[in-house]
Simulated scan of single mutants.
Amino acid sequence: MSFIRNIPDNSLSDKELVNRYKNSGDLGVLGELYQRYMDLVYGVCLKYFKDTEQSKDAVMQIFEELVSKLRKHEVENFKAWLHQVAKNHCLMQLRTPRNLKTVEFKTELVQSEENVHLNGVLEREENFQKLEHCIGTLAEEQHLAIRLFYLEQKSYHEIAESTGKEWNQVRSLIQNGRRNLKLCMEKTETSVKPIQKSI
């Protein structure tokens, strides 16, 4: 799986990394711990979704869940606990009505509210100029990350390698960038609604 970046084991146990993350809140520590089991999480997601791209997206979503979830739970066996978290995430996604396959709505596009919004925009050619304008309002690093991820279809790992950023930094840039894009697009859409109604 090319999107998974393997890192050397620094000899700390899972339990030690869990405790270090709980005490410090350092996402780098959580990222190091999570990367040990990304292949396991990906396998669980693939088993449920039967789709590689959706499974890759779920791996990133589950990491985002862990940021707060791990600090709230007492975890003795991180691997077993993570397996259950991944399983629950997949089951919740499959049970959510918006993720059911229909003619109009593609399951593989479902990642989050922000992603659904952006993917819909990208599919509508008439909104491309508005999207270009909003991308131009982003901070330079967010601008680059969004272009690579959405327009050039690069993975988190590929973006990290090409920009020299850490995986966690790439995740943060894309997450914040798509939120800013969503806000910009909503403002743009709101501003043109009265014109559309008067025609």
Rank of each mutant, 00 (worst) to 15 (best):
R171K: 13
H89F: 15
F128T: 10
A145K: 08
W81G: 04
K87Y: 07
L66D: 07
M185E: 12
I146G: 03
S191Q: 13
L82P: 00
Y150I: 03
L70D: 01
Y156K: 06
D57M: 08
K87L: 06
L122Y: 02
S162L: 11
G120D: 04
G120C: 06
G177A: 01
V170M: 08
F78R: 01
L66H: 05
V116W: 04
E113L: 11
T190V: 03
Q84D: 13
Q169V: 10
E140Q: 12
E104G: 08
N77A: 10
C184N: 05
T188M: 08
N127M: 10
E113M: 04
V170G: 07
I135F: 02
I174H: 04
Y48N: 08
T163C: 00
E114F: 12
K165A: 14
A139R: 13
E123H: 05
L100S: 13
C134P: 00
E125H: 07
K50M: 07
E65G: 05
R124K: 14
V85I: 02
S155E: 07
L181K: 03
V59L: 02
C134I: 05
E140Y: 11
W167N: 08
R98Y: 13
L109T: 07
F63R: 02
L82D: 06
E186H: 10
K101I: 11
H83E: 14
V116I: 14
K187Y: 10
N168Q: 09
K50S: 12
S172I: 03
E126K: 15
L94P: 01
Q129F: 09
H89M: 04
E161I: 06
I174V: 15
H133R: 14
E141C: 03
R95M: 08
Q153I: 13
Y48P: 04
L183R: 14
E141N: 12
E104A: 09
N168F: 10
Q169C: 03
E74N: 15
L109D: 14
A145L: 07
G136K: 12
E152R: 15
N168I: 14
S68F: 05
L183C: 05
T107F: 14
A160Q: 02
L118R: 07
I62D: 03
Q153N: 14
N99T: 12
Y156W: 09
N119F: 09
S162K: 12
L122K: 05
L94V: 01
L100T: 09
M60C: 08
C90M: 01
N88T: 09
P97A: 04
N127C: 13
V110E: 08
H143M: 12
L66T: 06
L148C: 09
L181E: 00
L151R: 12
S162T: 11
K56A: 01
R95S: 10
E161K: 11
K87D: 14
N115Y: 11
S112T: 05
